[in-house]
Nucleic acid binder design. Structure first.
Lengths: 197, 197
DNA sequence: TAACATACCAGACAGGGTGTTGATTTATTT
DNA sequence: AAATAAATCAACACCCTGTCTGGTATGTTA
């Protein structure tokens, strides 16, 4: 990992790279993007790229890292450290909002050509927080059951996120959070008719 | 797309390729696997590979395609065509079972280095079936709401699947299906204590 | 069994991407 | 203005790709 200089030129260069990268990712998966093509698109020298990143995947990883830092920053005030957050819905809403703020990247990392590794990092981030809430609310469940429930709920939220992005994120983040909360807690039953099964 | 010969030699070669590919995928993501490396691992000539597949992604796609065909075959008797299946849990169980039967591939396509595109195909496969059930059971909901609910539920099931695989698929498929059903229909509330929120 | 078709292989080929280097130019900082 | 840091350019050897030979072995068909 190279160190990130704060020189004005460096920041401009990195911005050019990021812009070119997200543009290209809109039309092709990352594995099809060569450093050469990326640099042509960004209008920089190829050697310059290597001064900032190891390769295309290093670039992708660093962009994701920045986003996760954003997310952590946004969530920090809502999460008393080491403790279960009292308002889980507010946390969820903050997540939706943050991803909306980084939508240029998210539509890619979470999109069809997206990066599974990033999803995993996103999930493990929320894991500890949710588990502490779970074990408080669902004290009867076994740890293994809790694992399965978190796997279901967190992955479900990702699906919700993806759908939300497909729709252009027009629904307010708060409303999405409310929907997520309800789906996790009560499933789809609250909508059910009297129809059988 | 090349035509698949049924010549004995061809089948052996394709099997060698598949075996080498899944082995390699266990230790690196597909974008790191070169045709050269793959052929060395499989012990075949590089030109031979190109006689069967266009590139590594074509190979991956065809393997996934075969698996989806398996899945459709297994599901067909449970799904009266064009109609909503009456026993959704049986369908879910069949899905779990089929993926278990193809676990060598699934641990890869659904694993950490997995392929998002495959997930999408898996999801869209179940989409129409589920939607017909939804619109029957949840007649009050708007189509947009149904979309969101399917996004949540289907993605949640994927998460459950992944967790299941991590655990070595030791839990019976039927039991997993029951858990999935319950999580989708009633959420995690059935476990809840009297704790607040 | 003989003739045929098909799939392998080994090797070579041009083309292109990779990652690095060293010398030079340009911008920033103090 | 001098010192420092970054971007540029050209060139390098290396590896992978995709294709195409001609030769060999293996199946398939009559």
């Amino acid at each position: 990992m190279k160190k990130a200089s704060n020189d004005h030129r460096s920041r401009v260069t990195r911005m050019l790279i990021r812009r070119a990268f997200t543009q290209l990712l809109g039309s092709m998966p990352p594995e099809r993007i060569s450093v050469k093509l990326l640099c042509e698109q960004a209008g920089i020298n190829r050697g310059t790229f290597y001064a900032h990143y190891d390769d295309v995947y290093d670039l992708l990883g660093q962009l994701e890292e920045e986003m996760l830092e954003d997310l952590k920053r946004a969530l920090a005030p809502l999460m008393p450290m080491g403790e279960a957050p009292d308002d889980l819905e507010a946390v969820t809403a903050a997540v939706f909002q943050c991803l909306k703020d980084n939508s240029d990247l998210c539509t890619v990392t979470l999109g069809d050509y997206g990066d599974k590794a990033f999803l995993n990092r996103l999930l493990s981030l929320g894991r500890s927080a949710c588990m502490s809430v779970y074990s408080r609310c669902f004290s009867q469940a076994t740890p293994q059951q809790l694992d399965y429930y978190y796997a279901f709920a967190s992955s479900g939220c990702i699906g919700l996120l993806r759908k939300w992005m497909e729709e252009g994120m027009s629904t307010p983040a708060g409303e999405m959070a409310r929907m997520a909360e309800r789906l996790m807690r009560t499933g789809m039953g609250f909508l059910q008719d009297d129809a059988p099964k």
